[in-house]
Nucleic acid binder design. Structure first.
Length: 114
DNA sequence: ACAGTGACAAGTC
DNA sequence: AGACTTGCCACTG
């Protein structure tokens, strides 16, 4: 048995909260999900997430704004396309956090009780 | 138990 | 800016 579903669910629920046209870092999602220091776990569970569930995985990137995938890779290109559909500018495989970074307000934080 | 791993992060040069 | 190092800590075999 793997009751990891509990952690994965927290991550998925948190990622769902990222507004359209905004992005968040792996570490930020981990913190908001109540899993401080588990940035790498966030990436892992996103990769395990079934693609049928509408999960905006592409709104999650590194704290530097870099996409997690190698520039030019199929995954990176797909992520770039999905972000640009939402108006997020992706240049050199990176997004300007200062412009598109998600800053959850108090209301959004209150919604996040698991 | 233990060593290797990872869609990361922060610091140093 | 780009490359490298260290810290991180649960997951996996």
């Amino acid at each position: 048995m793997h009751n990891e579903l509990s952690k994965a669910q927290k991550v998925w629920l948190t990622v769902q909260k990222i507004p359209i046209g905004k992005v968040a870092s792996y570490g930020q999602i981990a913190d908001l999900a109540g899993l401080p220091g588990r940035a790498r776990l966030v990436g892992k569970v996103l990769g395990q997430a079934p693609d049928n569930m509408k999960l905006p995985w592409y709104r999650v990137l590194r704290s530097s704004g870099q996409l997690a995938f190698e520039a030019g890779s199929p995954q990176a290109e797909k992520q770039k396309g999905l972000l640009q559909e939402e108006g997020v500018v992706v240049l050199k495989n990176r997004v300007k956090i200062s412009q598109f970074g998600w800053q959850p307000n108090l209301g959004e934080l209150l919604e996040m009780q698991f």
